[in-house]
Simulated assay, not measured.
Amino acid sequence: MSILNLSAYKFVTIEDGPAWRPLVTERCNALGLKGTILLAPEGINLFIAGPVAEVRAFIDYLRGDALFGGRFADLQFKESLSEKQPFRRMLVKLKREIITMKKPAIKPELGRAPSVDATTLKVWLDRGHDDTGRPVVMLDTRNAFEVDVGTFEHALDYRITKFSEFPEVIEQNRADLEGKTVVSFCTGGIRCEKAAIHMKEVGIDHVYQLEGGILKYFEEVGGAHYTGECFVFDYRTALNPDLEPTATAQCFGCRAVVPAEAQKSPYYTPGKTCPACHPDAKTGNSQAA
């Protein structure tokens, strides 16, 4: 597998995003990379892929170029390999937030919520409590369709459809978290970091974020205490605990996740329709193509 996939984020003040955007775009295009990079006043979030040597060169560029004034010198990346390029084009976007919560008072660079690494979390889940004896509850901060692809065993899932719903959902379900050690998690760490900070700010004690999210957990300890796959926002759709692409697909008609079994349906046409959106699915027309 010759394509290196990277994901990374960092909450750090960025004042020069508009000036950086064309320069970062030019460097990515020169290296033949594809993916998405988000630049916002609160930080950077990226998902890119390309040949290994070129991706390594981009890592060096972000960490060392004088343009960034050392902001990304400690940027940590999650890596996986694939046979094919999972992105169609290269985009560098300017955003208000690198992950939208609509809570502008949250400034993660001023202080992170406590984090737990994958190895420690596995120990906690093995025995059912943390080092103090408090029960551990896993809190999935992702959207419902992502959770349906796979999640931690017994994780709390509030069926959110977008991350900006998270603060209200937590207010409605505080009783689920009282007296427990809460570990928020997501795909790569960015949502669960903001989620953990919000919970601390509203007075929920004993909150941790899973460092590096599900992908880092897979990388370090595999699939222990996890059921299913991990949805990713590229054309691989989902990864197994070995960080390998799976047979799960996504419908480009309605964006629904289509498991391997559902792909056998006469309503599934790659790139067009699936059982969730095909016009004949509701009427039960088995002759659908």
Rank of each mutant, 00 (worst) to 15 (best):
V257R: 08
E153W: 09
Y235C: 13
S286F: 01
Y235S: 10
A155L: 03
E153F: 09
L110D: 07
T120Q: 11
L215I: 13
A53I: 03
V92W: 12
L91I: 11
K78Q: 08
H198Y: 15
V207K: 13
M90V: 09
Y267L: 01
G188R: 03
R112D: 12
Y61P: 01
P245E: 10
R142I: 02
F87W: 02
E109K: 10
T187Q: 07
V12C: 10
I48G: 02
L156R: 14
H278D: 09
T273Y: 13
F166T: 05
G133S: 12
L81K: 12
L38F: 08
S164C: 01
Q287L: 06
V202K: 14
R191I: 03
A113L: 12
G50C: 03
R174Q: 09
P241C: 00
V182P: 05
E261F: 14
T119R: 13
P241F: 01
K282A: 10
L31K: 09
Y9L: 11
D234Q: 06
Q250P: 02
F77Q: 03
R134A: 12
R63H: 08
S7V: 15
E244Q: 08
G69N: 02
S286H: 05
M90H: 07
K95N: 10
F231E: 01
G271R: 04
K216A: 13
R71L: 11
A256N: 04
E171V: 12
K200P: 00
E178V: 14
G70D: 07
R63C: 01
G133T: 11
H129Y: 10
C230I: 01
K103C: 13
R88P: 01
P104W: 04
P41Q: 06
V24C: 09
K10W: 01
T100M: 14
G43N: 08
H278V: 08
G213M: 09
G35N: 10
Y268L: 02
I37H: 04
R159W: 00
I44K: 05
G189F: 12
A19L: 15
A262C: 02
P114T: 13
S265A: 08
Q287H: 06
K194W: 05
G271N: 08
D126N: 15
F77T: 00
A105R: 13
F87D: 00
R88G: 11
T237H: 14
P51L: 06
V52M: 04
T273D: 03
L215F: 12
G203L: 11
P114A: 15
V221G: 04
R71D: 01
H154Y: 08
L23S: 02
G212F: 05
K200V: 09
K216M: 07
G133R: 12
L23W: 00
E97F: 05
G212I: 07
A288K: 13
G203W: 14
